[in-house]
């Protein structure tokens, strides 16, 4: 395929993906807005007012970046896992597999679809958060880069999950039993300064710690981990996830007989 043809194929996949999640917005966009509003009310307003300051900010200001990042992670992941598994389940993935579209374009198309949903939900959640607190962005560059890198990483993770999933239960196991605990233990609701040294060390094995803290740095200018280390870790995980996803597509694992 020529580059122009590849661009057409890519934009077709992206357009289809965006159309899909906008068509079912009550299942894809609305739940995050409602869930995050509840978090803001309960943790930020009701409980947060009794907690006082954390990391030099009101508790509400402290949790907002983590909650926005939580929405980005879960939405970019679940968009790709449900869409790609769905296309495997109804065999419509064959439409792509029989076509001359290169594998990297297929992967890129789904990943961009996941990123776009993650970012759209992030915008919605940010707007909701402004009803509860005011936000001052410390570094737009860090915010944009970390959002793009994180949503790419978790969109790729969602793709890998979808390739191995055999049924709809399999696409909810990882988000429920892996992703959610990692997010909750990733410093969304607390500063790692509060943890004993041992558990703070253990927490550093959690990739979500780097994601949440790097984003918090971009918004508030404070972080429990060093920023270059956070970028390095997220970058490394993204490259590994991309390489593995390409390997799965090129070998036809669970896609071709």
């Amino acid at each position: 395929m020529t580059l122009a043809e590849q661009y057409v194929a890519l934009s077709t996949i992206v357009r289809k993906e965006i159309k899909r999640y906008l068509r079912i917005w009550t299942q894809t966009l609305l739940p995050s807005a409602i869930t995050m509003s509840l978090y803001f009310v309960i943790f930020g307003t009701l409980i947060g007012s009794r907690i006082g300051e954390m990391g030099g900010f009101t508790y509400m200001q402290f949790v907002v970046p983590g909650l926005i990042m939580m929405a980005i992670v879960t939405n970019s992941y679940s968009n790709v896992v449900s869409s790609f598994f769905g296309s495997k389940f109804n065999n419509s993935v064959e439409e792509l597999l029989v076509s001359p579209t290169p594998n990297y374009i297929i992967l890129l198309g789904y990943v961009i679809g996941g990123i776009s949903r993650g970012m759209l939900v992030a915008v919605v959640v940010t707007i909701v958060s402004l009803f509860f607190t005011h936000l001052h962005i410390h570094s737009y560059f860090v915010v944009v880069v970390i959002v793009l890198m994180t949503s790419t990483l978790f969109a790729l993770a969602g793709f890998i999950n979808a390739v191995f999933a055999n049924n709809f239960d399999d696409i909810s196991i990882i988000p429920t039993f892996v992703l959610t605990p990692l997010i909750y233990l990733g410093g969304v609701f607390y500063s790692m300064e509060l943890l004993p040294d041992f558990w703070a060390g253990v927490s550093r094995l959690n990739p979500l710690v780097y994601v949440v803290n790097a984003f918090r740095y971009g918004v508030l200018g404070v972080s429990d981990v060093s920023l270059p280390l956070a970028f390095g870790m997220i970058g490394l995980f993204t490259v590994l996830a991309f390489a593995y996803s390409m390997h799965l597509l090129n070998s036809g694992t669970r896609l071709r007989q």
Partner: peptide, 12 residues
């Protein structure tokens, strides 16, 4: 949409 998308996968 199905037919148009398929054309897109062939670069049309």
């Amino acid at each position: 949409d199905i037919v148009i998308n398929q054309a897109g996968y062939y670069g049309l």
